[in-house]
């Protein structure tokens, strides 16, 4: 059901099933007693009740026994959590950036990707931050989750034990396309991973503009084919009259090169009427890439 395995989930599941077992015991106990009492002491059989005010020993017993049980639950949960928070020496660090509504992963050699490629059987530390609102990085298969918070760095780690893909979700509500803020962790054999990592990086091949737009999460809101989205489509945008809100007032401008540049770099300065003002400015967009994007939009008719 979940895909690749790490050993940490087994410990989480064991804690979970321990609590489930204790819970089922008490649920069945109380439910059975209620039903048995209600049938056995029904008024037609037993017109007069016995008045029992309480029982001190019982009160102590049903305070102490649950107390011990919940302390055990706490202990197992805590032990698992400690493992989750103790990153082993020599873990490989990947930087994770969350933004509305996309994940991006940056490796130590500078390679960036929209999916999280990792080698099998190696500790991976994710060092995470957000450029806009709260997100939460969640891999159900690995039982790991941690919020991704703008303005600070959070982390988690895992050690995948089998190869294969697994889902990554955003678990903290982050606006319109929250449910689509997904990605994949792809667990590769060590050599495969090294090959993948070496292929990219700073010397890697130049990516196409659509891939560039996807990597900067532009395509989550702006379509290339003219279909409506959260933001205006990029098709046929260049040279069109735009009804803008500038400093709270409406203005009409032509979408020329200067306009596109401003709209990308300072999205909040002027924005298109009837659209939400929540586009994040791109992070780490080079001047060269910006020019390529503008040229691309210009040609997109």
């Amino acid at each position: 059901m979940y895909g690749p395995v790490t050993s940490y989930p087994a410990s989480v599941d064991a804690t979970f099933y321990f609590i489930v077992a204790v819970s089922l015991f008490f649920l069945l106990l109380v439910t059975t007693l209620m039903i048995v009492f209600a049938v056995r002491y029904r008024r037609s059989r037993r017109p007069r009740a016995e008045q029992i005010e309480g029982h001190t020993l019982l009160e102590i017993a049903w305070t102490i026994i649950p107390l011990l049980l919940v302390l055990a639950m706490f202990h197992f949960g805590f032990e698992g959590f400690r493992a989750l928070r103790s990153v082993p020496e020599g873990a490989m660090t990947v930087k994770v950036t969350g933004r509305m509504w996309d994940w991006s992963f940056r490796y130590e050699n500078g390679r960036e990707a929209a999916k999280l490629y990792v080698p099998v059987d190696r500790a991976i530390k994710l060092s995470m931050t957000s450029v806009d609102v709260l997100h939460s990085f969640y891999i159900p298969a690995f039982r790991v989750k941690e919020d991704v918070v703008p303005g600070r760095e959070t982390y988690l780690w895992f050690r995948p034990q089998t190869t294969g893909p697994a889902d990554i979700y955003c678990a903290e509500y982050c606006g319109q396309r929250h449910a689509y803020m997904m990605s994949e962790v792809v667990v590769l054999e060590a050599e495969e991973f090294e090959a993948w990592l070496a292929a990219g990086g700073e010397e890697g091949e130049k990516e196409g503009v659509p891939a560039l737009l996807a990597r900067h999460a532009c395509l989550d809101c702006h379509s290339l084919d003219g279909s409506p989205g959260v933001g205006p489509t990029l098709r046929g945008l260049y040279g069109r009259q735009r009804a803008l809100i500038v400093a709270g007032r409406e203005e009409t401008r032509v979408a020329d090169e200067a306009y596109l540049r401003r709209a990308i770099l300072e999205p909040d300065a002027e924005y298109v009427r009837d659209h939400e003002r929540n586009m994040p400015a791109p992070v780490g967009l080079s001047e060269e890439d910006l020019e390529r994007i503008i040229a691309y939009i210009r040609a997109l008719e």
């Binding site: 804690t15 609590i19 819970s23 919940v70 197992f76 949960g77 493992a83 790991v144 903290e172």
Partner: peptide, 20 residues
């Protein structure tokens, strides 16, 4: 059931999985 599922979430490692 509500209370007992609450215990499951009270345990830190389980909570991390089922949170949100």
């Amino acid at each position: 059931i509500g209370g007992l599922t609450g215990l499951m979430q009270g345990a830190l490692s389980v909570n991390v999985h089922v949170h949100d």
